[in-house]
Amino acid sequence: MENNISLTLKVWRQNGPKDKGRFETYKLDKVSTDSSFLEMMDILNEQLVNEGKEPVAFDHDCREGICGMCSLYINGRPHGPDDDVTTCQLHMRKFKDGETITIEPWRSAGFPVIKDLIVNRNAFDTIIAAGGYTSVSTGGVPDANAIPIPKVDADEAMDAASCIGCGACVATCKNGSAMLFVSAKVSHLALLPQGKVEAARRAKNMVAKMDELGFGNCTNTGACEVECPKGVSISNIARLNREFLKAKLAD
């Protein structure tokens, strides 16, 4: 049932990459529990604009959990207190009347803050550019049904491919590792005959790029899997390690 709740928000404000940043506290009344978390942020911003203040900058776009744009560390958890959702799918019914909510940006060496709650995730694109594709150009490819693919493999590839590139895995990892992200792409493509051809080379190049960009090492804490809004499994990391080892042995 719909209710209205009052909230205290502690929000990270930072003018730019070089600003030190600080928490600011805001009060919000009469927030409908049917609102999404980002609609609550809209209400806050409307209030700030009406007071002549600068609204809080935060990333968001599709607001249906698929574009991977929204981020936010909410009460110490990436994407907040609900499971298997992105911040845009989180609803205020998960919070209590009178609650204080702490809102921070992703905090990781790989993702520097741009402004307030917005971080720079270009590193993910750079890692994909290092090898996260099949090297085929447009045209001249075989018929789509030329190579049958076992349904289990196709389904497993789909599960790995459901990564939305939001960065929650990196943000939650105490080492700031991007292994879940990288392994999801390596798995997705290695599981399919079209991607298998370059699997070893891909694993090697993507891991090298990840290391170069300053992401930490994986120590198997499993935090990434818990916070992944799409339920991408850490078994992908095992597959990445296999592909990586094969590549190294072949060297």
Partner: peptide, 22 residues
């Protein structure tokens, strides 16, 4: 039809039947 061929070559994991076809 070319689009479907292209996407499969890129590794788009389309849904498949148990026989392995799309």
């Amino acid at each position: 039809n070319d689009i479907i061929d292209q996407c499969v070559a890129q590794g788009v994991p389309f849904a498949r039947e148990y026989g392995g076809l799309l």
